[in-house]
Design a protein around this nucleic acid. Sequence first.
DNA 1: TTAATATATTCTGATATAGGAATATATCAA
DNA 2: TTGATATATTCCTATATCAGAATATATTAA
Lengths: 140, 140
Amino acid sequence: MARSATTTDAFAAIAEPRRREILGVLAKAQADGHRGVAAAPEHDVTWLVEELGWPQPQVSKHLSVLLQVGLVSVVRKGRRRMYSLNADELRPVFDWVKQYEKFWEHQLERIKARAERMHRERTSNQTHRGPVPPSQAPSD
Amino acid sequence: MARSATTTDAFAAIAEPRRREILGVLAKAQADGHRGVAAAPEHDVTWLVEELGWPQPQVSKHLSVLLQVGLVSVVRKGRRRMYSLNADELRPVFDWVKQYEKFWEHQLERIKARAERMHRERTSNQTHRGPVPPSQAPSD
DNA sequence: TTAATATATTCTGATATAGGAATATATCAA
DNA sequence: TTGATATATTCCTATATCAGAATATATTAA
């Protein structure tokens, strides 16, 4: 078997930085309101191409993935297609990652507690690996 | 070019469901404390293999990816390697997706407002696509 | 030393990208 | 009808997976 398809779910779709960028541009466009005037929620592919500076086919292909996953919606308007953000589909990602919030929320307390512990204790005999642990392992 | 490497960042790493599962198991193990006794933050590969029910090489390989991205840490202990969750590296994902929270936070209000609008208005002439748009595009 | 245990690594094959280039399709304009 | 514009799709290639099987490596036990 190979890697799971990018169109499997939001997790797979947003793994690609460029797709996150597209969502970001659409979000910005939707959020930015000028002087109380609501921002445009929909946008042209041409507009996106200009905004992103990528080749049009590339933009279209990424939009296709986002569409299949439901992260964007389309409305045909003449020969144009108006895309808009569908942030709803990001909720599963949010909910999943939110579960882990507690692990860094209390980190400060834990670090403090460990510091005190290490004042008395003196364990060793352990090798360390892994990218820069937030706190030094007591490897003395 | 091909797809970006799974070891590029947390986004790429957690695109794989099995890797999310591993993180989930490590999180559960770390969170579950029994009768005020702190849960074990570190775990054997063997323990993970039993917990997950996958072939050992598969577990090791996924752990390798998670390690490279920094989502887990390792401590060697005899012939065993104790892995532990490093949720810190999930923060970028959390921060990114949190930006989009506002788009579904106010959704109820928007839906209500739109419902009222549609009571009077009656536009149509637009083709729809995309997975169940939560809201009709107000094309006025 | 030899065996057993714990874990990582290598090799293989099927597959799905992502980007680039070219092209097809649909719609509007003249 | 012919041309122009907007967008999608197809073909190509290089690459990186993921699972499975087999094997290598390191450590402890006998």
